[in-house]
Computed example of a mutant assay.
Amino acid sequence: MTSRLAVTPLRYHPDVEHIQPDEPQTARDLAETVLSIAQKTYADSGHATRSVHAKSHGLLAARLEILLDLPRELAQGIFADPLGYEAVVRFSTTPGDLFHDSVSTPRGMAVKVLNVEGARLPGSEGSTSQDFVLVNGRAFNSSNGKAFLRNLKMLALTTDRLEGTKEMLSKVLKGLESVVEAAGGESAMLKSLGGNPQTHILGESFFSQLPLRHGDHVAKIAVVPASDNLRALAGTRLDTSEDPDVIRHEVERFFAEQTAVWHLQVQLCTDLAEMPVEGVETWDEKKSPFVTIARLVAEPQPAWTEARSQAVDDGMHFSPWNGIEAHKPLGAIMRLRKLAYEKSAAFRSQRNATSVVEPLSCPFAESGAGQKSASLANGEQ
Rank of each mutant, 00 (worst) to 15 (best):
E73D: 11
L272A: 07
S127W: 14
A353M: 02
I247M: 14
A340T: 03
L330P: 00
L193A: 04
S56W: 08
T159G: 02
H317Y: 09
S319M: 05
N322Q: 13
F206D: 10
L98W: 05
E117N: 13
D271N: 10
L202S: 06
R237M: 13
D239G: 06
L330K: 06
A110D: 10
M109S: 07
E186K: 13
L157G: 06
I66L: 03
R308I: 08
A139H: 15
Q265G: 02
R120T: 10
A43D: 09
Q25C: 12
A222F: 04
G184H: 05
V246I: 06
T282V: 12
D44T: 09
A260N: 03
L121Y: 02
N144Y: 10
L70Q: 03
S319L: 05
G77R: 12
V7R: 14
K191N: 13
A119R: 14
G185L: 06
V246N: 09
D314F: 05
T270H: 05
A365D: 02
T94L: 15
T165R: 11
V172G: 08
L157W: 04
E380V: 01
G118W: 05
D271C: 14
T26W: 15
F132R: 06
R161Y: 08
R237P: 04
K338A: 08
N115P: 07
E163T: 04
C269F: 09
G108T: 08
L98F: 09
